[in-house]
Structure formats: structure tokens, C-alpha cells
């Protein structure tokens, strides 16, 4: 299981809490009442999964078990199945946890371009470093483009990572147009025959129109240079984010058509339930999860393990 074990320990506290709570709540042999359901609903809300998803699960339980004698295993099965179906959505997005690169769509012709975006402070740069590390380990040649020219020392941060990883990096002085960095990155990747180009962008709040237009421009510049690129647009989401995550996913997708999420900082007590709401609203799948500050702390998202990690012993 590797990293998922670590995720499990990370979630341990939350999970045992949830479990003991739920065990206390649903005692075998009792009859399921509205009050019990409401209490369970409160637990669901606490995972940040949002009102619609929590309501869906509650309603499912209501339909199947309300007024009946509780059989714990059946209740568990209903909850788990509902969660899994919410996470998997319509199309099959199952990745092999043992193949760290399986969630990514690679271009037929080198280079594959990955654009990374998100609001301020969610962990974009760190996630890029982790992703680059994953790619490098699989024998890919990676070029980074330090597109965050706004925040003080963001370029230095990525440069330090590139030195540690030993991959090439394209930078421009602070304050220059991030689209030009993306352009230079594409040129560099084409010249050096790199397999993957990862473009960092500055953090931006999704309602800032001007900054969102800037992101659109970056996207346009990339496409004009390498047709069909960027092949992956990954939105980084902080696991502690509440319902605003949906707004983030929507606004960013409108501008750059996100292809997936990276759920960062899942090693705290936050449960990242917001991905359920996002998956439900707009079928944007989670591709990777960040589980710590170390370079290896990134793993492929696996819906089954996610649900298991939340509920299993």
C-alpha cells in the first residue's frame, strides 16, 4: 500500500473519531430514527463534502434503512457504495495506484505539457516539485517553467527544487509576463527534447478577472506554440478548503479547462471531502494527493482507498 498507509495514519485521528461516533450512533439491533440520521448528517458535513453530497448519502440511508432494524454491515455498505459512486462519477476514472503516471495523459509527440494552477498558498510549487520527482523516477526528462513571477521569491523556491531534483528550469526576472515564461518553457522543452514540461503559475483568487485573463493568455500562448498542449491542466486544491473549492474548480475550469485535481495537504485533520462535491458538480477527477512536505509525499488518488481510509479499521 505504501503511501496509502501513511494517508491512513494521517487520517487515523479523524477516522477513529468518525468510526467510534458512527458506531455509537448506529447500534446493531436498534431502529434507525430521524434523529440518528440527523446526527450522522452532522458527521458528514464535518468532512467538508458539502450539503448536496451529505444530503444524498443521508437520503440513501433514509430510503434503505429508515425505520428498520439496523444491520451495521448493511449500513456500512450503503454508505461506502454511495461514497464510491459519488467519487467515481459517470465515466470510469480508475487508475492503477502502482503506476504513478497512469492518471496523466501523455502526448503522442514530445513534449507533454502540464499546466498547474490554483489559488494562493494551496501548495502549487511544492506539488510541482513532487510531480517532477515522480516523472523523473520513471525516467522522463522534465523541464520546469517558473511562471510565478509575481510573488516574492517564488522563482527562487522552484529553482531550489530544480537543483535538488536535478532538472532543467526556465526562469525570467520577477515581474515579467508569465506568458513569456511559458513561451520560453515551450521553446526550451522543444529544443532539449524533454518528455514533460511543467509550467508553474502564480496563485490567484478565482474571482480576480484580470489575473484569470492572464491565465487564459498563458494557456493560449502554450497552445499556439504546441498544438493540443497543455495536455494536462491540474488544479491544486488545499484539503482544508471548504465549499469555496467548488467555486475554485468552476472558475478555473471555465478559463483553462482543468483536466484534474491535486489534493494537497491531506496529512492534517482536514478530510478533503470537498472533492466529493466537486466530483458531483462537475465530474473533475482527483488525480494525485499530497501527503506531506517531503518530495516523495505524492501519490495517485484511488477512490477505493480514499473511502477505505476514511472508514476502515
Amino acid at each position: 500500500m505504501g503511501l496509502w498507509d501513511r494517508l491512513k495514519t494521517g487520517l487515523q485521528k479523524a477516522k477513529t473519531l468518525l468510526q467510534t461516533d458512527v458506531r455509537d450512533l448506529f447500534k446493531a439491533g436498534e431502529i434507525l430514527t430521524e434523529d440518528k440520521l440527523e446526527e450522522f448528517y452532522a458527521r458528514l458535513i464535518r468532512t467538508d463534502m458539502g450539503v448536496p453530497a451529505a444530503t444524498a448519502i443521508r437520503d440513501e440511508l433514509k430510503e434503505k434503512h429508515l425505520g428498520r432494524t439496523l444491520v451495521l454491515d448493511d449500513v456500512w455498505k450503503t454508505i461506502k457504495d454511495k461514497l464510491r459512486s459519488l467519487l467515481k462519477g459517470g465515466e470510469g476514472t480508475l487508475w492503477d495506484p502502482n503506476q504513478p503516471l497512469s492518471p496523466l495523459k501523455f502526448a503522442a509527440q514530445k513534449p507533454t505539457v502540464i499546466l498547474v494552477a490554483g489559488v494562493n498558498g494551496v501548495g502549487k510549487t511544492t506539488s510541482i516539485a513532487k510531480l517532477a520527482n515522480l516523472l523523473k523516477k520513471s525516467g522522463k526528462k522534465v523541464v520546469l517553467a517558473a511562471g510565478d513571477t509575481f510573488r516574492a521569491a517564488a522563482v527562487e523556491q522552484l529553482t531550489l527544487w530544480s537543483q535538488r531534483l536535478g532538472c532543467e528550469i526556465v526562469t525570467k526576472p520577477a515581474g515579467s509576463d508569465p506568458a513569456s515564461v511559458a513561451h520560453a518553457g515551450c521553446t526550451k522543452a522543444l529544443e532539449s527534447g524533454a518528455d514533460v514540461l511543467i509550467i508553474d503559475t502564480a496563485g490567484r483568487i478565482q474571482t480576480q478577472t484580470n489575473l484569470m485573463k492572464q491565465l487564459e493568455k498563458i494557456h493560449r500562448v502554450i497552445t499556439s506554440q504546441i498544438p493540443e498542449a497543455p495536455h494536462e491542466v491540474l488544479l491544486v486544491l488545499d484539503a482544508t478548503t471548504g465549499q469555496n473549492g467548488v467555486s475554485q474548480a468552476q472558475h478555473f475550469s471555465q478559463v483553462v479547462r482543468c483536466t484534474g485535481l491535486i489534493l494537497a495537504k491531506l496529512d492534517g485533520t482536514a478530510k478533503g471531502g470537498i472533492v466529493l462535491a466537486i466530483r458531483q458538480m462537475m465530474s473533475l477527477p482527483v488525480k494525485y494527493v499530497g501527503l506531506g512536505e517531503k518530495i516523495d509525499d505524492l501519490d495517485v488518488f484511488d477512490p477505493d482507498s480514499f473511502v477505505e481510509a476514511l472508514f476502515s479499521d
Binding site: 458535513i45 464535518r46 468532512t47 467538508d48 489559488v119 498558498g121 488545499d238 482544508t240 478548503t241 471548504g242 465549499q243 469555496n244 473549492g245 492534517g268 485533520t269 482536514a270 478530510k271 471531502g273 470537498i274
Partner: peptide
Amino acid sequence: CDSMTGQDAVNS
């Protein structure tokens, strides 16, 4: 504290 934080804000 980030104002976008969800239910976990209380814990931290």
C-alpha cells in the same frame, strides 16, 4: 488563517 478553510478551521 485562510478564509476559505472549511470545517477543519475549528480544529486547527
